[in-house]
Design a protein around this nucleic acid. Structure first.
Lengths: 167, 167
DNA sequence: TTCTGTGCAAAGGATTTGCATAGAC
DNA sequence: GTCTATGCAAATCCTTTGCACAGAA
């Protein structure tokens, strides 16, 4: 094998690039709605549901409008492409960035519905041990700890104190 | 305080008894559909969704028929009463026995959709540690490890071997 | 007898789909 | 020019609800 200068191997660095590769490799077209959604979704790292996403996009009639059905179609595409990941909270379906983000799990505050991310190698280690006991071949996991976040606990204490003061 | 003979404190042992207490304490009536559902649900320890449960019950027209809306209403009641617990799988909502069962988590086989239960004190310990780091007050958690169960792995290997044999 | 619980049919909310047209390649 | 992708409206799926009647207490 002849020695060659190092080539810039096709490594998508941004979600946009990654998605363009995905489309190319499947002969799909890079349309305006696809560009708009990738742009909007990856402009900030937060969790969102379909309605929230639609709220951030141009309204019907405006330039750049994307219909609700297309949003549903494209979100599925992003999940398929490994750009987004799905989280089920109560009955709500929310999405978060997958591509370029380290594996992590969540604390979910039942009071303010905030999601707090954390990463734990011990958890992965424990997960693998547990699976091994049952000869189970792991591909992934979902772990959500629910309860009340620090802020909401503080707020509650403050409210209680105030009530006492009034007596 | 006068010493007394030990009384049989009201401790519900069966789900039926437990549910009867629940109803009594709230002035609710122990109706035929309620009896039928508790009976059916706790006659075997497995996971089920609403359709599966309806399939196991008498059809419309037969004696003991319970309508779909009543099934929905009563399942919510059971969850409320602590008899059942909800699990979200993909888009499907399934239920499992809660009352009288120790806290546990699941391995979920993506191939055969089987749920395998396991219990891990280390997991609870780790969960509490992780929450503490964020001053998060834990009330519970959801942990599902997904992948492929032993049986499905074996079946796959067998199929592959057979294919090779044919060459 | 009283009032909760049920079945029915209809409504609701989230998501998917069929189809004619717009638009990427 | 060809053929995929989109917007629209309607359909679908799962679940909840309003209402009149049935049936526990």
């Amino acid at each position: 094998m002849p020695s060659q200068p190092l080539e810039r191997v096709e490594v998508a660095s941004t979600p946009t690039e990654r998605f363009e590769e995905y489309l190319q490799s499947r002969g799909m077209r890079n349309t305006k709605p696809r560009k708009i959604l990738v742009e909007q979704i990856f402009s900030s790292h937060d969790h969102f549901d379909v309605d929230e996403l639609l709220d951030r996009l141009p309204r019907k009639g405006s330039d750049g409008y994307v219909s609700r059905s297309t949003v549903y179609r494209l979100i599925s595409e992003f999940v398929e492409a490994g750009l987004l990941r799905t989280i089920e909270l109560d009955g709500r379906t929310v999405y978060e960035h997958d591509y370029g983000y380290p594996q992590h799990d969540h604390l979910y505050c039942d009071t303010c519905e905030k999601l707090i991310e954390f990463q734990s190698d011990e958890l992965i280690e424990l997960r693998n041990q547990l699976a091994k006991k049952s000869n189970f071949q792991v591909t992934g996991h979902r772990f959500i700890i629910s309860g009340e976040c620090e802020d909401c606990q503080k707020a509650k204490r403050k409210r209680t104190r105030r009530k006492v003061d009034l007596i």
